[in-house]
Design a protein around this nucleic acid. Sequence first.
DNA 1: TATGAATGAGTATTCATTCAT
DNA 2: CATGAATGAATACTCATTCAT
Lengths: 188, 188, 188, 188
Amino acid sequence: MPKIVDHDRYRKELLNQCLALFAAQGYGSITMRQIAQGLGVSTGTLYHYFPSKESILEQLVQDLCEQGITDFFAQAPPAERVGDRLRIVIEFFLAHYRFYQQQLLLWVDFHQHSQRKGTERQAFLQRFWQRTHAQLVAYLQLPNPAHVDFVLVFMDGLLLQCLYERGEAEADWVTQQTELLIALLDSA
Amino acid sequence: MPKIVDHDRYRKELLNQCLALFAAQGYGSITMRQIAQGLGVSTGTLYHYFPSKESILEQLVQDLCEQGITDFFAQAPPAERVGDRLRIVIEFFLAHYRFYQQQLLLWVDFHQHSQRKGTERQAFLQRFWQRTHAQLVAYLQLPNPAHVDFVLVFMDGLLLQCLYERGEAEADWVTQQTELLIALLDSA
Amino acid sequence: MPKIVDHDRYRKELLNQCLALFAAQGYGSITMRQIAQGLGVSTGTLYHYFPSKESILEQLVQDLCEQGITDFFAQAPPAERVGDRLRIVIEFFLAHYRFYQQQLLLWVDFHQHSQRKGTERQAFLQRFWQRTHAQLVAYLQLPNPAHVDFVLVFMDGLLLQCLYERGEAEADWVTQQTELLIALLDSA
Amino acid sequence: MPKIVDHDRYRKELLNQCLALFAAQGYGSITMRQIAQGLGVSTGTLYHYFPSKESILEQLVQDLCEQGITDFFAQAPPAERVGDRLRIVIEFFLAHYRFYQQQLLLWVDFHQHSQRKGTERQAFLQRFWQRTHAQLVAYLQLPNPAHVDFVLVFMDGLLLQCLYERGEAEADWVTQQTELLIALLDSA
DNA sequence: TATGAATGAGTATTCATTCAT
DNA sequence: CATGAATGAATACTCATTCAT
């Protein structure tokens, strides 16, 4: 049993590192050797922890779905005004900007992968969004629940636009758009 | 006399069909054989028109960048009220929903591909966004130009969220979010 | 009938040009497109005159075998002294140095090609050497017929050594070796 | 612990076996699969040791150039008379006849390959001939150093003529020509 | 457990050959 | 006759996966 824990802990550690690798290259373009190298292990070791390349993707997606953004709400301070709570959420989001962008890229890969395999909609992905949505609803307490989706849409859009690289003035632009969102929702 | 083919026209035709193929599979995961099959030609013919898989991606991106959304403004009717113009833009966008989603997926692939190759930011991609932005600014005539970016962010976010597949009630949800955007921007 | 003559004449013309191409690249490494380009025709035309790549090689070899060095004896002036006749032969050989080197390279290709195909020794190649030998015997009138083979061996060796590129002083070196051969055989 | 293999030693072993394969087929005509099969390994393994087909050729040539004929002089017994030393050299040469013929064929392939690639004269090939020449000069102690080149020319010519297959009486013919060379040089 | 050498099916690409024009 | 676009089998090369150590 103790062995299992170590093995499992190490596996999760490797898994987490895989996110950045997949996001940077794309699932289809990265090779097992590149993954192993990125993790600092041999291919043999990689296969010791994961039965296949496919399974790395699947475990990674599943893992992310289960993690969710729970860690946020464990630490998020409450706030009186809607605008403040919105700002808190978005600031957290921006602070973990890289992570969410990588996650986004992984969703895309997983989507293409699922379609290719003819896998029916993976339940955990659905649950992930439902949970995310529910948690945001609970925290933000917006008058209109559709606004929560709007925030999610906005965040995804922001992540994407930043991929297309606006270069230099990016940070300012992000702040500007963020403030715009807050202002619009707050006044609504 | 040689078989009469307008080499360049045919190449562009093939290129256009490639968009859907790349979007469905991902650049890294699709094979040249699959592409050829999807286009209804042999691999030899595919290579007759494109020197490499890489070049298909690059030409496709460049092509899309040059096309832009000009075709929209060729047919877009003017409208008095800001809200109406917004609605017209978004309706056009939704009508070509699949296309824009595929384009989005291609941008992602191209982004990863460029990073892998260490290519510096391709000028045409930048010009593409600038042009898109400028055209929208001119058409929408929003009081605040930042709102145009906000619309673009929204659209990208919408495309992504729909990838993650909300399934059944998708159309309704899209309408709801769209109306929300219009309402927010109109009242601002 | 007249058509045939033209067709056949053109074919031989093309065939002759092929020698340099095969020699430069090697039969296995040159492509039909490169051959066509080298000849200034399209691949279609090339196939109009030759049924296959293999057949070009075979026809070329056969052609060369039939030509032989007859053209030499048509113009070779007789000479009193053995050394002079030897010099005349070798001067002719050196004057057509490139041609003989290309022929040598073709023999090599044909040898490998025949081995690969399991073809038994081609009769015409044997006849070629017999004829060459006989003609040299008749012209040179050396006391010892083995000396004729010795001359042939020398010539082949010379062509090869020049392939390995002695660079600058090549011409001098060739003259030196040639004079050496003549001196040795003359004094024998 | 990894499978224990002396990577470099094994690579050289494979390299040596490649000589016969290249010589039999020609560089341009042999395929990597045939090479792998000839070596008794998989294509994957072949690529584990050599990055490309081209590099096999280049490494092989370089390897041969560095080996040289040093092994001969390590065992060659001295002899009083020039004719005897000459006979010893030629006997050694004939004993390794197959090897030298294969080497010759490789030089031809490499020559064509270099020309194709526009590579400038490889230094090691030049050094190879210089070394060979110098060693022969030292051992043979012929009065005239040009005679050493003459011997080399003769040997190359002999190897070639034997390619063109004189068939049955080959061995006798080789002996005859060899004796002739010795007689000519000895009496000079 | 960890390693990396070995495998061979699979991938991008080439090339001899065909054929519509 | 001549062309070069089209074909698909074959080629060089890669990569997920296995396995001896």
